[in-house]
Design a protein around this nucleic acid. Structure first.
Length: 112
DNA sequence: ATTCTGACGTGGG
DNA sequence: CCCCACGCCAGAA
């Protein structure tokens, strides 16, 4: 259920991120678009930052549109995000996901 | 209230 | 492909 109250925006982000399947990744923009605020991708980033406390949020599966691990520095260590993704079968080259499009999971398509 | 910053995205050059 | 400017919204100072 995706609430439309903007006060629940963060909560909506978490709902979507939780649904990202193992070994798949998506972008901040895709989530923002799915929530009806395509131009608010930055806020999605903030939601991730705020989700820092929640443990069921696979924030490492959310990257920017180029597949670059821009948020890795917000993890415990700068290598954690990369290693988490690699453990899911992805290939990271210089903070860039190799064949990003092949692993891209678009909530706008995968979800209704 | 005002200003700045940022895990972003798009468009133009 | 790279670089730059702008828009977007939430939160901190």
């Amino acid at each position: 259920m995706i609430s439309k109250n903007k006060s629940d925006f963060f909560e909506n982000v978490y709902q979507v991120v939780k649904k990202i399947p193992f070994g798949k990744v998506t972008t901040y923009g895709a989530i923002a678009k799915y929530l009806g605020s395509a131009k608010s991708a930055r806020v999605v980033g903030w939601a991730m930052n705020a989700s820092h406390l929640s443990n069921d949020i696979p924030a490492h599966r959310v990257v920017n549109r180029t597949g670059l691990l821009t948020g890795k520095k917000h993890f415990f260590g700068v290598n954690l995000m990369k290693q988490l993704l690699e453990s899911e079968g992805l290939v990271i080259k210089n903070d860039q996901i190799h064949d990003f499009k092949l692993f891209f999971w678009d909530p706008n398509k995968e979800l209704e």
